[in-house]
Design a binder for these strands. Structure first.
Lengths: 186, 186
DNA sequence: ACTACTTATTCAACGGATTGCGCAGCAACT
DNA sequence: AGTTGCTGCGCAATCCGTTGAATAAGTAGT
């Protein structure tokens, strides 16, 4: 229900093409909401039909033509209306965690392998978020406050995850050392 | 793609009805994956068609009849197969965070109101997770290891969130004190 | 020369998820 | 007497999301 609103938030600052938005969804806003380009183009179409955005057609040579979208007054109204009413709590759907919950069926080795893969990803994200945040610190603390707070959310999230991963590793190590209930000889 | 696997994980330990599962999705597993009863009944139907689960029909008096589902060997095989292949990283879709990112359009007061509401929810969850975890500590550290680790994930997550909320509060307070760029007199 | 990537938009098919509704009876509270 | 809430199952419509593909021309690397 609120891909549209994420798009409207982005269009607030600047006019952008579907392609531009897709890139931002892969970076900044992707921290918080993600979407593929197909979804974005579709939603832009709908938003245009409802005249929440309008676009101008830009012919280009060398590159394909593009449509630059901007938010309309109706769009801004809709966004403000949405901001006012409480958001539904996000639904959680974490396949990796389902695996952990069913961990009895796996061996420690394969769990650890996947844990490390996920940890790499998180560490990578942590780095990008931190470098983005430090850039903001230097130039502007007041303007871009909300970008900064969004980044902080991402940073704390990754850190908590990595801390949890350490706990998992030491728990599994302990368990290996004095192995469990499964009797080898009756 | 893996509501089915979450269900299979749950059915591993015990035979359960759709209703039972729905309750667990509202509590324990809900930490990690959530689903409504409609979805669950539908998925149980499909799993049954593919003979990954089977059920026995239990007539009851006073209460409506129920179907008790249990996992089959095929189901267990499918689950193990799924556990082996890497999980896709979870896609993030947090409406409240979209609001924060678009925070320039709101006033501090309404942001703080919603922040507090969300914080209440998180604190509540933190309490339930912590009390569940402490129960596990007493009785069994080795058995139920994965339930424990799942709970730890939830606990660390809530704590990180609440810590972030404190940061937001103090940032907004500072901003109130020396208000921003918007000139009142030209 | 060939391959791969980037810019840019769009369509079609399918499957997953949400919303809303319906049935049914019992228990407990007001 | 009436409302609410719990146990229990299910259908249908619609919407949202994912996957896969097509088109088209430029640029950069092996």
């Amino acid at each position: 229900m609120s891909l549209r609103h994420a798009i409207l938030v982005l269009l607030q600052d600047q006019e952008a093409s579907g392609y531009d938005l897709a890139r931002e969804f892969a970076n900044s806003i992707g921290l918080v909401w993600n979407a593929t380009h197909q979804q974005i183009y579709l939603e832009l179409g709908k938003l245009n039909d409802q005249s929440m955005v309008k676009y101008r057609h830009i012919p280009q040579d060398g590159k394909p033509d593009k449509k630059l979208y901007r938010i309309t007054d109706e769009g801004r109204d809709e966004l403000i209306r949405w901001l006012r009413k409480p958001a539904a709590p996000p639904r959680i759907r974490d396949a990796f965690m389902v695996k952990i919950a069913g961990g009895d069926l796996s061996d420690s080795a394969s769990i650890l392998r996947e844990l490390d893969d996920q940890a790499d990803l998180r560490r990578e994200r942590l780095n990008t978020f931190e470098s983005l945040a430090s850039k903001l610190d230097d130039t502007s603390q007041d303007r871009d406050l909300f970008t900064y707070l969004t980044l902080r959310r991402g940073i704390l999230d990754q850190q908590a995850w990595l801390h949890w991963a350490d706990e998992v590793r030491s728990a599994l190590k302990k368990r290996e050392e004095r192995p469990v209930s499964v009797p080898t000889s009756v």
